[in-house]
């Protein structure tokens, strides 16, 4: 199932439009709360990023059998240093945007926290594309991080 949302630069009052609509659909699919929450946060932060930092863009969501695929693309101006943008608290947001309660430098780190796969493709002066995946079965996703059951029982 494919959904697409146009996002206008600077339109903060409509932030959350895509995430609310997708939330409604994910709830109807009876996906675990953890999946719904991750998707809502990742989508909301993506919307805010496009609104606050870009010249405008789209959020495309594909609901597949085992995961959610999100592709956020904008028309520029690109991210100069992706690694720096990924660090918590770093923001290029203007004072005006911060006064509106956005631009705390948590956008991308929050997206990373709430996705199971994240790929940022960007160059300064060019467009940005952010691709993410959220798996429906969160247990298999978290398994590698947990200590093995055998080791814990001795």
């Amino acid at each position: 199932m494919h959904f697409e949302f146009e996002i206008e630069a600077g339109d903060f009052s409509n932030a959350g439009n895509a995430s609310s609509q997708i939330k409604k659909i994910l709830k109807q699919l009876n996906l675990p709360n953890s999946v719904v929450k991750k998707a809502v946060v990742a989508l909301f932060e993506s919307e805010v990023n496009v609104i606050g930092h870009s010249f405008g863009g789209t959020v495309a969501i594909d609901i597949e059998n085992e995961h959610l695929h999100i592709l956020v693309s904008d028309t520029g101006p690109g991210i100069e240093d992706v690694d720096l943008a990924m660090s918590e608290g770093y923001s290029t947001a203007t004072k005006e945007i911060q006064e509106m309660g956005f631009g705390a430098g948590m956008g991308l780190p929050n997206i990373k926290k709430n996705t199971d796969y994240l790929d940022i493709r960007s160059q300064a002066g060019d467009h940005t594309e952010i691709e993410m995946l959220i798996h429906f079965n969160q247990e298999t996703v978290q398994a590698p991080d947990l200590p093995s059951a055998e080791g814990g029982q001795s």
Binding site: K24, K27, Q28, L29, N30, L31, N65, F136
Partner: peptide, 8 residues
Amino acid sequence: VKLDDNLQ
């Protein structure tokens, strides 16, 4: 709100 218990 759920349409069905089975995801498929």
